[in-house]
Design a protein around this nucleic acid. Structure first.
Length: 640
RNA sequence: GCCAGCGUAGCUCAGACGGCAGAGCGGCUGAUUCGUAAUCAGCGGGUCGGAGGUUCGAUUCCUCUCGCUGGCUCCA
């Protein structure tokens, strides 16, 4: 007589013989093929999981948030099955779910071509149609190794030898078997709506000295509609691509003649940067910051002292002048430190908050460069705060408040906040780390912000808070970082004289709120899809005269509005009004003022708002104050 | 840096067996003077990313190089 296991589902309790798969419960639950898995606490169990002890289970169906990840994982197995069938001799690596789909790594001499991907996708569809059951197997380690050796899957053998215990879990569907903890969907028939997206290189076990595998990326959904929605989302993201918009709207320019990762801000981008920087400076002054300017190079010895030559890999090679070596700066910190040390500091003058839009140069590896988001020369919206221990928490709070105030102005309302704590390798005293981590956490708590802790993910020189912002289509971007630094304060022997007359070590906070002007601009372009709000738009209004005889009137309006500080231009091309409007819409100019006979006689203009269409005729005197208000408020949309 | 792919007019892209280089948009000129997303006609515009090699001949094939793209790795 086998032991009976009690399984509670909702209000009902079922009994199962120990070791029977949970799939025995299917007929009684009346969910039919909607039932995908069970959830037991935080653990997901597939239907082939054997009843082991009394549990309370929750059925998981396609509408549950957990289901998608399992679908993706199962889809990666399906991908591997198709690839191994179509390309004998290929070895499978690993194949997990990602945040938006799945991938699988393969070792193969030839590259997978786009045609190969089509063939693989087709084969995946066929296997899905066969609706093969996906079975969970528990094998003795030696047996599992033998199975994968027979199949020539050496990478799998290596994984089992490394990770497997005495017994290992494998999953089997048709002739395909994989070393995997699961869980998985009940059968391949659930994996119907699949799209393979790309293929790229990936290192075996992430080690760049090891062999390089080919990684096939894909995604899958439970319905054609969801898959289409996701593919549309990708298309939407492509339309927003800041590299494309940056060129179309003439915001910035890169050129082979400059070198990789170096950016020219063209006039339309430069005016936006100017406006952002002014706003940034005003807000920093309000928060009691002072400004610093520092040079772009300094003696190599400075960077030896700071430890950068030793620890920082992305430095440009030094250059020699009159027998002395100089270094292009990758960071601003040492300059602010030198300013701090320019004289003795008293506890009375702390905290010092020194900000600089500091341009730095980092020799990033060529392969990581990406538009404005990863460049070699960029300007950080940097600041260093030197403060006493009793000031630390308030300073951090102030930084977070300022960060959120700035980000909100651009329409970023959703954040993911991470507190990264002490890693295994660290400098500074344990006591200082504890104080600092506590201050960071208290600052977050008292700002009533939700955050998650990244245990051990701090930098070796101090704990940090990172803020990721969510853009208009839900993507996350890392911009803000607030870091404590125990390393530089020590290396440069920073001190202040305390109330007690003794020397004390100040706490040093390093922070960038927008991150860098380049990256932030890239994110902004994508966030707004090039439709900058009125206060940032390079050209706020374009005046479109209907015929030549209206041009003088157009210029009259132009000079009037320019005198009021608006960025306005006149389209004096000899095109029809329809063409002028089209051109202005393409240039994403927020306001279009159409002027013809009617307006000339009525001393008015006919307003059209980008994306909103014709607003009708109005007097300039009524429009102007409203526009000035929108600009002053940094309004994100134009409502009149 | 690594794997894979790409580089043709300002932009988006065709093209060919190795044999005079093509379109649309933009630009310029002219005509049109027009009311809410493209008026018509004409004209310019190219070291086919750069260097070297093979060849009678290379934009096309080969090598190197620069730049870009998707990833990996990295990110004090």
């Amino acid at each position: 007589m086998k032991e009976l296991i009690k399984v509670k589902i909702g209000e009902s309790v079922f009994s199962l013989a120990k070791g029977t798969p949970l799939s025995e419960l299917i007929p009684q639950l009346k969910l039919g093929d909607k039932l995908l898995l069970f959830k037991s606490g935080q653990e997901l169990l597939d239907l082939s999981f054997p009843a082991d002890h009394d549990r309370e289970l929750k059925p998981v169906t396609a509408s549950d948030p957990e289901a998608l990840e399992i679908l993706w994982h199962s889809a990666s197995h399906l991908l591997a099955q198709a690839v191994l069938e179509l390309f004998p001799g290929v070895q499978a690596g690993v194949g997990p779910a990602t945040e938006t789909g799945f991938y699988y790594d393969f070792l193969r001499d030839q590259a997978f071509t786009p045609e190969d991907l089509v063939a693989i996708e087709t084969r995946m569809g066929e296997i899905a149609a066969e609706d093969l059951p996906i079975r969970r197997l528990i094998l003795k380690k030696e047996e599992a190794i033998r199975i994968f050796e027979e199949r020539g899957q050496k990478l799998k053998v290596e994984l089992i030898q490394e990770k497997g215990g005495a017994e290992v879990t494998c999953y089997e569907q048709g002739d395909f078997i994989d070393f995997c903890l699961g869980p998985h969907l009940p059968s391949t028939g659930y994996i119907k709506y699949v799209k393979l997206l790309s293929v790229s290189g990936a290192y075996w076990k992430g080690d760049e000295r090891g062999p390089q595998l080919q990684r096939i990326y894909g995604t899958a959904f439970f319905s054609q509609k969801e898959l289409n929605d996701y593919l549309n989302f990708l298309e939407e993201a492509r339309k927003r691509d800041h590299r494309r918009l940056g060129q179309e709207l003439e915001l910035f320019h890169t050129s082979e003649d400059l070198g990789a990762g170096l950016v020219i801000w063209q006039p339309k981008g430069a005016i936006i940067r100017y406006l952002i920087e002014n706003f940034w400076k005003e807000e920093h002054l309000k928060d009691g910051y002072d400004f610093i300017y520092s040079p772009h190079i300094a003696k190599l010895d400075l960077w030896k002292k700071s430890g950068h030559t030793e620890f920082y890999e992305a430095m440009y090679p030094p250059l020699e002048l009159e027998g002395c070596q100089y270094q292009l700066k990758p960071m601003n910190c040492p300059f602010h430190i030198i300013a701090y040390k320019s004289r003795q500091r008293s506890y009375r003058e702390l905290p010092l908050r020194w900000a600089e839009l500091g341009t730095v140069y980092r020799y990033e590896r060529s392969g990581v460069l990406h538009g404005l988001l990863r460049v070699r020369g960029f300007t950080q919206d940097d600041a260093h705060i030197f403060c006493r221990e009793d000031q630390l928490e308030d300073e951090i709070k102030g930084v977070i408040r300022l960060a959120i105030r700035l980000l909100r102005a651009f329409g970023f309302e959703n954040y993911q906040i991470y507190l990264a704590t002490r890693p295994d390798k660290y400098v500074g005293s344990l006591a200082d780390w504890e104080k600092a981590e506590k201050a960071l956490e208290e600052a977050l708590k008292s700002s009533s912000l939700t955050y998650q802790i990244d245990q051990g993910e701090g930098v070796f020189y101090g704990p940090k808070i990172d803020i990721k912002i969510r853009d208009a289509i839900g993507r996350l971007w890392q911009c803000t970082t607030v870091q404590l630094d125990f390393n530089l304060s020590e290396r440069f022997d920073l001190t202040y004289v305390g109330e007690d007359g003794n020397f004390h070590r100040p706490f040093m906070v390093h922070r960038a709120l927008l991150g860098s002007m380049e990256r932030f601009f890239g994110v902004l372009i994508e966030h707004y899809m090039g439709n900058f709000p009125l206060w940032l738009a390079p050209v706020q209004m374009i005046i479109l005269p209907i015929a030549d005889r209206h041009e003088a009137y157009a210029r009259e309006i132009l000079s009037g509005l320019r005198a009021e500080g608006l960025r306005v231009k006149v389209d004096d091309s000899r095109e029809k009004i329809g063409k002028k409007i089209r051109q202005a819409e393409i240039e994403k100019i927020p306001l279009m003022a159409i002027v013809g006979d009617k307006e000339m006689h009525g001393n008015s203009l006919s307003l059209r708002i980008h994306g909103q269409g014709d607003q009708g005729e109005m007097k300039i005197d009524t429009l102007l104050p409203r526009l000035k208000q929108l600009i002053q408020d940094k309004s994100l949309e134009i409502k009149l």
